[in-house]
């Protein structure tokens, strides 16, 4: 379903959830949880947004049932470690490509996804200083390399 305009800020997290639903349903679950929680803060009053958030909540409830045997979903502390590891894996892959001078769309996406997953970590509480720095760096790198490739320049 189309995302209502007031909830546009969660569209990338929802797209990540969709993309990872088969590969890693736990990450997809927490991306959606982040989207609902953030969406409720953005707008849970207009009928359009309420309807959208209710549907997302339906999906989350059924995902939680399906994943009930998975400790990463039944215990949020384990879930936190799972998301943090996944974000770090994405970050390290992109960083390794960057340091090896291999600039491509996939590494840009990995940097950006790592930054989105660090956003998702906020559902568990305040971010560590290290995660704040990683998020800032990953988002900046993704934008910088994207612009370089678009303009036919070699990233430094």
């Amino acid at each position: 379903a189309a995302i209502p305009a007031p909830l546009k800020a969660i569209q990338h997290h929802l797209r990540t959830a969709q993309e990872l639903e088969k590969r890693d349903p736990v990450v997809a679950y927490y991306c959606k949880l982040y989207a609902v929680q953030t969406g409720m803060k953005l707008d849970s009053k207009s009928p359009e947004c309420r309807k959208f958030l209710m549907k997302l909540m339906d999906q989350l409830e059924s995902m939680k049932k399906e994943l009930s045997d998975n400790e990463s979903v039944s215990q949020e502390l384990v879930g936190h470690a799972h998301i943090e590891n996944y974000a770090l894996k994405m970050f390290l892959y992109a960083d390794n490509e960057d340091r090896s001078g291999r600039f491509h769309k996939n590494m840009i996406k990995s940097f950006y996804t790592a930054s989105l997953l660090i956003d998702v970590l906020t559902v568990f509480g305040e971010l560590s200083e290290e995660n704040i720095q990683h998020r800032k760096y990953a988002r900046w790198k993704a934008t910088y390399i994207h612009n370089c490739l678009k303009n036919g320049e070699t990233p430094q």
Partner: peptide, 27 residues
Amino acid sequence: TGSVGSSVASAEQDELSQRLARLRDQV
């Protein structure tokens, strides 16, 4: 009808908050 509408809206908002809390085992 305006107040009925806003009552419905806040009931639904509560429903969302309650479902979120249940989902996260916070109730």
